[in-house]
Every structure is written in C-alpha cells, then in structure tokens.
Design a protein around this nucleic acid. Structure first.
Length: 427
RNA sequence: GUGGGUGUAGCUCAGUUGGUUAGAGCGUCGGACUGUGGCUCCGAAGGUCGCGGGUUCGAGCCCCGUCACCCACCCCA
C-alpha cells in the first residue's frame, strides 16, 4: 500500500518490468508472425477527430454513445482518445491513398486504446491491443488468412488450442442485411412481452444486438428468431461458404455461432471471435471481421477490408491461466565487482568495455560491500563475476570467477572482453 | 450507471468477546566470513491499521460517511 495518495487513474495500470517484458514479448511475437503473412507496421495517432469514430463505429453503439474519452482541444476541435484501432487505420489509408486504384494493403498495429467503462477482470480504461487490417481485398482467402494468422499468434504465445474457441458467423451485406434486420425487428416486436426492456429498445436501434443479450430469457426467445443464414443473398452465402471451406482445408477448427454479432456498426459478412478459458467474464481475447463499407463511410472509393484486434491484457491472462511463463533474459551475463572504492573507475572502464563488446554487464552504484556485490551478481543471474581489486589491477589484470563452478582465474585487463565473450558462447 | 466484496509493512496476509510498546512469512539492508554468491543462523530498517467523523475510560476491531481497489451486470479486445 502506498503511503502517498498519488495513484494512477482508475482503470489504468502501470506496466511494471515483468508485465512490460511480457508486452514486448507478445508484440515481438505478433510482429514476427504478421510480417511473415505480409503485413507491414503502421502507427496512427492516439487521438483523432471525434467524427472518425462516430462515423466509423456508429452513433448507436455503446462505444460511441457512452465510452469515449472526448474533449475539446485549445483550438476548439472535438478530439477523442481512440477506443479501437480500425477506424484510425482506415482513415490513414484513405488520407494517404494507400488503396487507390484498387491497390491492396496489409497493415498491423499495436498500442493503447481508451474506453470509459467500469473496470473489471480483463477490462481496463486504458488497454493495449494488437491488430491487423487487410484493405482492398474482397476474396474469401483473405478472410481465412486473417483468421489463420490470429490463431497462429495465440498458438505462438503458448495458449493451448483446447483452451480456446474460435467462433465465426456472417452478418450479410447491404443487400441482404437491411431486410433481415427488419425481420428481426418485427420478431422482437412480436415477442416483446418475453424480452427484456433493453432488447425491445434494440428493435428500433440495432435489432441484431439482441442476439448477444446474456439474459437467459432473451437468449431462449432469440434462439427462435429468424437466422441470417436463411436470408442471406447468394453472394454473401457463397462468400461465407468459401471462408468455411478454406478453413476446413487448412485444418482450422471453428464453431459457427449465429448469435455472434459484433458491437461495431461497420462489420459486414465475416465476423469472428476467439474466447479463452480462465479469464472471468471477459473471455474474448481477440475478434474482428469484414467491413466492406467503412472506407465509403469516410468518403473514399468503395474498398473492401477486414481485420482483427487482440487484447494484450486478456491474452496475458489466458497465458497465465494456461501456466505459460514469459521467458526472462538474465539481467546481466557478467557482473563487475569492485573491491575497494578507489578502483571504482577501473571497474567502470571494464563494464563499459564489456558492454561495447555486446555483453550484458553490470556493476554496483550504491557503495555495496564486496559480499553484497556478489549477492547482487547472483540475483541478476550473472554467469561470471569480474573482480576488480587493487592487487590484480596493479598487475594489469582482473580475476574472473565462474559462478556455477566457483573457479577463478586471472585475465589480462586487455583480454577480458574477448575472453569473456568466448567463454559465454562456449556453453 | 447498478449491485456485491475487500482495504493492516515493498509483497502475501494474521490480529481471539474493543484493552497497554500492531505481528508473521517473503523481500530489502547489515553481520557471522574485515577480497567472494547460492544454504544456514543472528540482527536491523520499514506501518498516518485507506481517509474523516462518532460511540467508549479505551477503537485495527463497533457505528456513520467517504475514497480506492477487486468482482459481476452492461459492453467489448
């Protein structure tokens, strides 16, 4: 407990070294995998004009309606801290003509997102996402590719496949969805007496969302609602069938879930979500879908697109629940111990030379006793301790102690870096 | 926004029907070994008992308020 009242704001957390290391490990893993799939990095601003999210995500959504960090800047502009990554990436792609003349474009991003929500397990006001977006590509192979990439990522960070579920669904497009939407809306009105208030209200705003109402009564009523599967236009049906068949061909196991309805308005056709065990109520570690109309909503040429986002904190929870440890590199391979204060300068020179030679080396800066320096060296995981003492320095030497075998030898000062370098690589 | 739970050392937690100087383990620092780690032993530092008020001779413990955190609803990654 801190003795001070200074605290990080509600819903934010400091990433202390252990978690920060995990974030770096996870981002590096994502980077390695997604770049192998042909995706390139992009960084967009952490804030945007509010309109980018209102138009992209949709006025009626919870995110836009009640979760955004919006403020007016000193120039009188309405600015919003990004609540998700897709809207920004698509805006950037349009602004810089990344998809003109039908060019395709595959991008990945990572960074913090902001949503004003009540924090709970796996849900923070500032949280970290990694995502990919594939723009300008309409064919079902890219839908399958994106899903395969996401599943490969989770496998690569060590989450066992049997602790995850991949859910997929199709939401249709502008030709079949409006009519279907109306059918669901009338179904809700007909069954209003058996549904919760919220769902009845949804008939007017966003009827499809009634499908993921967790109220058991609603769920059972909605299970009798008309399914898009039966109302889909031929093109959507063919696209969805193709995606499933491609996944089957490469051996990706998935479950079709007709109640899977994303809460962002821009989704069309393919949507998917990955859930993991052991996280508490917020069990979706990744999710995404196709958004073929989004570029037009920003005034661009019709440009298909799709992508996903994965939540870092939730991924980490899933990794921990599965007993996965993030590899910890040793803080120092070599520790340079200084016998007396008078030779601190010599010790510093040795550490510097070791570091220049590419060796992870460290020394004490707190005036510790020699014994305490050894304890520190041990804690840091150093394989060798270089002892810089007046005796050996007088002879232009240094003592090298192998911590595992507890054997020591004298080495000429000039040879220390080369000698240690080769001994470190020997094992 | 609505519920429920929890706030005692850096961390994880004890604290008996209110009773005197609030404890343990881990961690940190020091010593046993004055130029040598891991094990062991000894010692030390470290606490506005979340905060404010009330009851009482007396409050970490009881009451009221407040804040923070956690979990769930909702929603999403």
């Amino acid at each position: 407990m801190s003795s001070s009242n200074v605290r990080a704001p509600k819903g934010t957390a400091d990433m202390l070294p252990e978690v920060a290391r995990a974030w770096e490990h996870v981002t590096r893993t994502a980077e390695a995998i997604f770049s192998r799939y042909g995706y390139q990095p992009i960084y967009t601003p952490i804030f945007e004009h509010t309109d980018v999210f209102v138009r992209g995500i949709g006025e009626a959504t919870d995110i836009v309606g009640k979760e955004m960090y919006t403020f007016e800047d000193k120039g009188g502009r309405s600015i919003t801290l990004r609540p998700e990554g897709t809207a920004s990436v698509v805006r950037a792609a349009l602004e810089h003509g990344l998809t003109v003349n039908g060019q395709g474009c595959k991008l990945y991003y990572s960074g913090p997102m902001f949503r004003y929500e009540r924090p709970q397990a796996g849900r923070m006001r500032q949280f970290w996402q990694i995502g990919v977006e594939a723009l300008g590509m309409a064919e079902p192979t890219i839908d399958a590719e994106v899903i395969v990439a996401l599943m490969e990522f989770f496998a690569a960070v060590g989450i066992p496949r049997d602790r995850m579920r991949l859910l997929i669904n199709s939401m249709g497009d502008e030709r079949c969805r409006p009519a279907y939407r109306e059918k669901v809306a009338s179904f809700i009105r007909e069954n209003a007496s058996d549904l919760c208030e919220e769902c009845v209200r949804r008939a007017e705003t966003n009827p499809l969302r009634a499908f993921d109402c967790k109220n058991p009564g609603c769920a059972s009523v909605m299970s009798r609602a008309p399914l898009l599967r039966d109302e889909m236009c031929d093109d959507c049906a063919a696209h969805y069938a193709a995606v499933k068949s491609l996944l089957d061909d490469v051996g990706v196991i998935y479950e079709e879930d007709t109640s899977l309805v994303r809460g962002l308005d821009y989704y069309t056709r393919t949507v998917f979500e990955v859930q993991a065990e052991g996280l508490g109520a917020q069990n979706a570690i990744g999710g995404g879908g196709r958004y073929d109309r989004l570029m037009e909503m920003y005034g661009g040429q019709p440009t298909p697109g799709l992508g996903f986002a994965l939540g870092f904190e939730r991924t980490l929870l899933a990794m921990r629940a599965a007993g996965i440890d993030v590899p910890v590199p040793p803080s120092a391979e070599v520790f340079v111990a200084r016998v007396a204060p008078e030779v601190a300068g010599d010790a510093f020179a040795v550490v510097t030379r070791l570091r220049e030679a590419g060796i992870a080396a460290d020394m004490d800066h707190q005036g510790r006793s020699l014994k305490a320096q050894f304890k520190l060296a041990d804690r840091l995981g150093a394989r060798f301790v270089v002892i810089a003492g007046p005796d050996e320095l007088a002879a232009g030497q240094v003592t090298v102690r192998d911590m595992a075998s507890a054997t020591e030898s004298r080495v000429a000062l000039a040879d220390a870096a080369r000698e240690l370098g080769s001994r470190l690589h020997d094992r």
